[in-house]
């Protein structure tokens, strides 16, 4: 199908974006990479009156690191993040994730900020940024505020972004010595939305788990940090018994929705399978 008619504005400045958002409110949509938005427009799931194209705003696509924080501009394309040596060095969990984000032609357009702001519970980057304890920089007309991922993601496609705010970047704490990472997802075709996926960062000191963070996508109405599973692991020896307890505690963390792939019970099963595999990879 074709989108319903709309007006299109190529924004050159942030002020212009805020003027348009003030004027049109809910009838305006921000167009970043457009790789989710265009599909919903084509299917007429959404019919805004105005599209505000932010692709030409300056200074929003840089990736940089000061040694403590990795900064990823909202307009950094997935392919740019995939190829960034800073990302590989300072946030290897994101580097492991990117090859699973859609397909090359989509990665060439899709943006880091767009994926985060859209907050699809089945997408990789919302869950991975939550796992990493990322902070998001939200720009309003009168200034910026920073929100941690735990507070940013609030529900199904719901975030802390206000009507007249724009997500302009992400700040990711760099990986520390001894921290290990694992990323896995189960999808029917490589690059498609996963049925369930997991991102893990943490330590194994001797054979004891510590500082474990387990993020899940496709496992609820939002990207989920599995706190019960992490609690079942931290301070415990890496053993079959510990991993079984972590798997069992996922019942308290996850609440998958049935979809075309299968019922919620199947997704819970897949989440337990992925947990075991990801922890084995973490230990290897």
């Amino acid at each position: 199908m074709k989108p319903a008619p709309f007006a299109y504005v190529r924004a050159e400045t942030l002020d212009q974006v805020f003027d348009l958002l003030d004027e049109h409110g809910d009838d305006a949509r921000i167009l970043a990479g457009g790789q989710s938005l265009m599909a919903t427009l084509n299917m007429r799931l959404s019919a805004p009156e105005v599209l505000i194209d932010i692709n030409h705003l300056k200074g929003l696509s840089e990736i940089s690191c000061d040694g403590e924080t990795l900064k990823i501009g909202a307009l950094a394309r997935h392919s740019q993040v995939l190829e960034s040596t800073d990302v590989q060095t300072y946030a290897p969990l994101i580097a492991k994730t990117m090859p699973h984000v859609a397909h090359q032609a989509i990665r060439n357009r899709g943006t880091f900020g767009g994926s985060v702001a859209f907050a699809d519970p089945a997408a990789e980057l919302p869950a991975v940024t939550r796992t990493l304890g990322a902070r998001f920089v939200l720009q309003g007309r009168d200034g910026q505020r920073t929100v941690v991922a735990d507070d940013f993601f609030q529900g199904l496609f719901e975030t802390d972004l206000k009507e007249n705010e724009l997500l302009v970047g992400a700040e990711i704490p760099v990986i520390q010595d001894g921290e290990r990472t694992a990323f896995m997802e189960l999808a029917r075709r490589h690059g498609d939305y996963a049925m369930v996926g997991i991102a893990v960062q943490g330590r194994i000191e001797g054979d004891t788990f510590a500082d474990m963070r387990l993020g899940f996508f496709g496992a609820g109405d939002q990207p989920i940090l599995a706190k019960s599973a992490a609690a079942a692991l931290n301070g415990q020896a890496n053993s079959e018994d510990t991993i079984k307890k972590a798997q069992d505690s996922l019942d308290a963390d996850l609440d998958p929705m049935p979809d075309l792939n299968g019922p919620a019970e199947m997704k819970m099963h897949l989440a337990r399978v992925l947990t075991k595999r990801a922890l084995a990879e973490l230990a290897s």
Partner: peptide, 15 residues
């Protein structure tokens, strides 16, 4: 120089 989905990009964005 980069491949894209022609259905997920507006012609206006190719300005």
């Amino acid at each position: 120089g980069d491949i894209v989905r022609g259905c997920l990009m507006l012609a206006a964005q190719a300005e």
